[in-house]
């Protein structure tokens, strides 16, 4: 109860507070709470580390684009002639040389299994533990930021980072794709033709879906972050969990469990490129992410609001 209910105490304050001086009633507006979110966003996105992560993510589409360009410079198409396999490389890569917009999907497919969630793991894992090891957490709490409010702010910031990271990949890929490859109407994976404008719309939808796919690991990372006082340990644990789950998701004997792994439906974003869009797995993915967010978000809350801050 204690801290969460602290808000209620405000109502009763006049009974205790003496007028004048520092007690001169500050009547806070509920909107002032957003100051913390704004500050958190500014702090996160001004960090050298955050910018480095985004730069790495922006570089992936550039590298993929250049690689495809070199590979197909002799006029051949990627994956063609190689026989039925085509399994090498991330999804959609065989279409990139025909339409630059596919680089967006390829880049997201290439970064979603590891680069993107790793970046999220770093930011989420550091969210509470980093403040704790720097000692700034105690000052935020005596400010008083309020534990639930701080946690919520942190989570909102990590989600914002998910979105930013995904959009950085998508926008970088869009630019590189338009620069190196032809653009125009495109063929969905169901073989139907859609206009470039609709393709852009779907690319945006895919970026949003990918960002939403990361909500689960963001909550997981935040929970891990409340368990330890070391930012590095939290980041390492989160990224370790990510890799473990990715590996377990490949083991056929675990197929009964796999639908509950947060990464299981990640590649369902490709279903947006079917005609008509195949929603089943997309919905499952979003539901699963919401479930992870609820379970680990509330676990993080339970942990953080009862934790002794000794650092």
């Amino acid at each position: 109860m204690s801290r969460a209910e602290a808000q209620d105490d405000r109502v009763r304050e006049p009974a205790v507070a003496t007028p004048g001086g520092p007690d001169a009633a500050r009547t806070p507006s509920p909107l002032w709470s957003l100051g913390l979110l704004r500050s958190e966003l500014l702090t996160t996105f001004r960090r050298w580390r955050t910018l480095a992560l985004l730069a790495v993510l922006a570089a992936v589409p550039i590298l993929v684009g250049i690689a495809v360009k070199i590979e197909t410079s002799d006029g051949s198409s990627l994956g063609g002639g190689g026989g039925g396999g085509g399994g090498a490389g991330p999804a959609f890569i065989s279409q990139v040389s025909n339409n630059g917009l596919f680089l967006v999907f390829t880049a997201l497919a290439a970064t979603l299994p590891f680069f993107l969630p790793m970046a999220i793991g770093v930011v989420a894992g550091d969210a509470i533990a980093g403040e704790s090891s720097a000692g700034t957490l105690r000052y935020l709490l005596v400010a008083p930021a309020g534990r639930s409010r701080l946690l919520l702010t942190k989570y909102a910031t990590v989600i914002a980072f998910c979105l930013a990271a995904t959009l950085v990949v998508a926008v970088s890929a869009l630019a590189v794709g338009a620069l190196l490859f032809p653009v125009g109407d495109l063929i969905t994976i169901s073989g139907t033709r859609i206009t470039y404008a609709e393709g852009l719309g779907r690319a945006l939808l895919i970026a949003l879906v990918v960002a939403a796919s990361l909500v689960g690991i963001a909550a997981l990372g935040l929970f891990v972050s409340t368990l330890t006082g070391s930012g590095i340990a939290a980041m390492a644990t989160t990224v370790g969990l990510l890799i473990t789950v990715q590996i377990l998701d490949q083991i056929p004997q675990l197929d009964a469990l796999q639908p509950y792994f947060f990464s299981h439906y990640w590649l369902s974003f490709a279903d947006v490129m079917r005609e008509p869009v195949y929603w089943d797995d997309l919905v499952k993915n979003l539901g699963l992410q919401a479930l992870y967010a609820a379970v680990f978000g509330s676990a993080a809350w339970a942990r953080f609001t009862t934790k002794d801050i000794t650092a």
Binding site: G79, G84, G86, A91, S94, Q95, S190, G191
Partner: peptide, 10 residues
Amino acid sequence: VWGYDSQSNE
């Protein structure tokens, strides 16, 4: 009759 494999673009 068309067969289209999107993975290999064939």
